[in-house]
Computed example of a mutant assay.
Amino acid sequence: MFETLPEELLHQIMAMCHSVDYDVFANRSPQQLLAHRNETAHLLLVCNRWRRVVTPLKYETVIVTSRAEASILASILSRGRVGSYVKKLRIEGGFGQALHKVLSQVPRLVYLFVSLDITSESKGAGLCAGLKLVNPRYLILRDRRILGNKGVHSVVDTLIACMKTSWTNLISYDHPYDEFLWIGEEYSSHRYRARTQRSRALARALVDVPKLQIVHVPRAYYIREDDVVLNAIKNASVQRIFSWMPWQDGFMVPLDRYPRLRDTIYLPLPGPWLRPTYAAIGQGSLFPTTFKFSTQSYEFKRLWSDRWSSD
C-alpha cells in the first residue's frame, strides 16, 4: 500500500510520526524524547524511498546526551543540507567544543533546550561559543543538579547576554526553578545560594527581552518578590505566563498590586485533555476561589505535575 502512495502524502504521514509536542520536548526528563527517537529510527530502514523522505524529518528534532553524541552529530550536520533540517535542539549538558560546531550548523533552529548540568568550565566553553551563533524563538532551561562551578556560571551569563541583545527572535522562555520548593532550605547552603543567584539573574533578564511574549514557569500562583513572574510582568510585550502545575487551593498571587496578572497568568485546567488546556485566572468561573495577595505562611503539599517532575 505505502509503495503506491505519492511521495507528498508519504511525507505528511511520516511528519505526523515524527512530530514532538512542546511538553515532551520541554519535559525535565529526556526519556520520552529518547524513546521517540528510537522508535522513529526504524522508519529509515524500510527502503531507500522511505529513507529519502524520513531523513529531513528525523533531524528536525535532535537531542544530545553525551560528548560522543555531540561529536557524531557535529560530523553529520556538516554533510550537505542536514544542518538546515534542525528546528528543535535539546542539549543535556556541556559536551566540549563539539557543541560549538553543532550550533554553528543549525541556521533554521527554532526551539533550543539547554540543561545546566555542566560539570566544568572546559565542558561549557563550546556551548557558550555556540550560543552566540544561533537565534532561537523558544528557549527552555532545566537545572536538575544545581551545580555551582564556573562552567555553569559562564553558560548562564552567556544565555542572559544573548537573551537581552543578540537573540532578536526570542518570544518564549521556560524557567527552570520552582521557588516554592525552596521553603525551609538552609539559606547558607551552597546549593541554595547557587540556585537563588542564577534564578534571580535569569528572571531579571526577562524585563529586557524585547520581543518576549510567553513565559513558562513551574507554578505561577506562588509568587515572591523578585520572582520570575513579577519580573516578566514588567515587560510590556509579555502576553501570557503559563504554569506547568495546576492550581491548588490556598496559593496566592498579588492581584491588588499587579492587576495585569489576572489576564496574563494561565493555569492548566483539570480534566482528561488530549493536549494541555489552559485558562487565565481572571476567568473566575473556571476556578473555585478568588486569588488574593497574602503574606501569611502556609503549609502546602508539595505536588509536581508529571510533565515537570518526571526523571
Rank of each mutant, 00 (worst) to 15 (best):
F2A: 09
E3Q: 14
E3V: 05
E7V: 15
E7A: 15
L10G: 01
Q12Y: 09
Q12L: 08
I13E: 00
H18I: 11
H18Y: 14
S19H: 13
V20K: 02
D21K: 03
V24R: 05
F25W: 05
S29M: 11
S29V: 03
S29Q: 04
Q31Y: 10
L33H: 02
A35Y: 15
A35M: 10
T40F: 12
H42C: 10
L45Y: 04
L45C: 08
L45D: 14
V46H: 07
R52M: 10
T55G: 04
T55V: 07
K58Y: 13
I63C: 02
V64N: 02
V64C: 10
T65M: 00
R67A: 06
E69G: 04
E69Y: 08
A74Q: 14
A74T: 12
L77C: 00
L77E: 06
R79F: 13
G80E: 05
V82L: 06
V82Q: 06
G83E: 11
G83N: 08
V86N: 01
L89V: 00
I91W: 05
I91M: 04
E92H: 09
G93Q: 04
G94Y: 07
A98E: 11
V102R: 00
Q105S: 13
Q105E: 14
V110E: 15
L112D: 02
F113W: 11
V114G: 08
V114L: 15
V114K: 02
S115M: 01
L116A: 02
D117I: 15
A125L: 10
L127K: 00
A129E: 15
L131M: 07
K132E: 12
Y138E: 12
Y138H: 09
I140K: 03
R142H: 01
R145E: 15
V156E: 04
T158S: 00
T158I: 06
T158C: 01
T158Y: 01
M163I: 11
M163G: 07
N169H: 14
D174L: 03
H175A: 04
H175L: 03
W182E: 00
W182T: 02
G184R: 05
Y187H: 12
Y187K: 13
H190I: 15
R191G: 07
R191T: 15
R200N: 10
L202M: 05
L202I: 09
A205G: 00
V207L: 14
V207Q: 06
V209F: 11
L212W: 05
L212H: 14
I214P: 13
V215S: 05
A220S: 09
Y221D: 01
D227R: 04
V229D: 01
L230H: 11
N231C: 15
N231Y: 13
A232L: 00
I233F: 02
K234E: 10
S237K: 13
V238L: 06
Q239D: 09
W244Y: 12
D249P: 06
F251S: 11
P259N: 03
L261G: 01
R262W: 04
R262I: 08
D263W: 10
Y266M: 11
P268N: 09
W273D: 13
W273Y: 14
Y278I: 00
A279F: 00
A279S: 08
A280N: 13
I281G: 04
Q283C: 08
G284L: 12
P288F: 02
F291D: 05
K292I: 08
S294M: 03
S294Q: 03
T295H: 10
Q296T: 11
E299L: 13
F300E: 00
K301F: 03
R302N: 10
W304M: 08
D306S: 09
R307D: 15
S310I: 13
D311Q: 09
